[in-house]
Design a protein around this nucleic acid. Sequence first.
DNA 1: ACCTGAACACCGTTCAAGT
DNA 2: ACCTGAACACCGTTCAAGT
Lengths: 205, 205
Amino acid sequence: MSDAQLEPARRSAGPYHHGALRAALIAGAREILRERGHDAFSLNELARRIGVSPAAAYRHFENREALLRAVSFEGYEELHAALTRPMAAGLDPGSRVIEIGVRYVAFSADNADLFLTMFRYRPIRPGETVTVDAFAPLMEAVGAAQATGQLPAGETRQIALVIWTSLHGLTVLYLNGALTALGLIESPYEAARTSLQIQFPGLKP
Amino acid sequence: MSDAQLEPARRSAGPYHHGALRAALIAGAREILRERGHDAFSLNELARRIGVSPAAAYRHFENREALLRAVSFEGYEELHAALTRPMAAGLDPGSRVIEIGVRYVAFSADNADLFLTMFRYRPIRPGETVTVDAFAPLMEAVGAAQATGQLPAGETRQIALVIWTSLHGLTVLYLNGALTALGLIESPYEAARTSLQIQFPGLKP
DNA sequence: ACCTGAACACCGTTCAAGT
DNA sequence: ACCTGAACACCGTTCAAGT
């Protein structure tokens, strides 16, 4: 691999990014999201960092929102990857459900501003399926846990929805400080585990 | 009551709001929130609507954020009022838990942008208790439902937390369109009801 | 095809000055 | 005490012009 392929955005060799500007914009946006928080993102600051004029971004994205939707798209791909990453061998389906829940919370805590961007600017384009894909691993594990009797019978989508919404609520309330302000939880990971076990006692192996 | 007390912000009689500017700013902010959405709020637009210079707001609020925190404060008071409003007579504790859940979802749907502002700009000042107060009605109902055996035994705060986070997750995912995009739910009210009953089957009277 | 430079209306915030 | 007017740096976006 040449240097140009490795770090195209870092090379201040010239005013042109050889078509890699799009990728550089997305990477830079994620950097700003991490450093400044998701409400403080600025397209002008992004252009300044990359060493390009603000107008240059408009060759690759319709507007600020479209750029953030592309960032969001990456987020869904990475969330899906995190949820499908191999687990400890021989885990029963119920434990797999819990593990997916903990991973969801962990992803949101480790990528707080990316996570919040993902739900503020959902990636309508270029494929709505990324959001469906991210939901699929939970669906699969819930179905398996129903088969072993660790989760109640009934529509798999319904049970998976309950689990997802409850994890999501826990996460966003934790991220904006509501839960710690009320002295309700310490660790979001422990809270996810105990919440799931209170809702579905059968999840314990 | 004089006209000045009834509609101080509407009267273009003079440049002064007789100390009622603070209230007019908050009311106007809520109007903009409803019309433009919670990310599009602008302090300059607010000043223009009320017929005052942008700098005037800084007599009453430290900055834009402080103004939105005051709006948020009102939101928590109204949420608390909605959750404590009298219920149908003779409701068993389990049904009261469900009713509170439905009211939470209804409040968030009817005041979507106010609701989102409440969690984006939490009212640290002038009294953190409003957020605790809003949690209290659920705590009370959960405790009563535990006594009748409609909810499992254990720490009341834990059970209440599970119910709150799960309702909150359902609501925010519904508000940003994630659930309808995935074709997961129709009505958030029905979804709240069935979610609670899936998690805690004893809630049925 | 890809990017710059200059311009537009708008934003949040500050501060001296008016009443 | 309460508000105005003018100014500041900054923002998202457009568009003609450069290479």
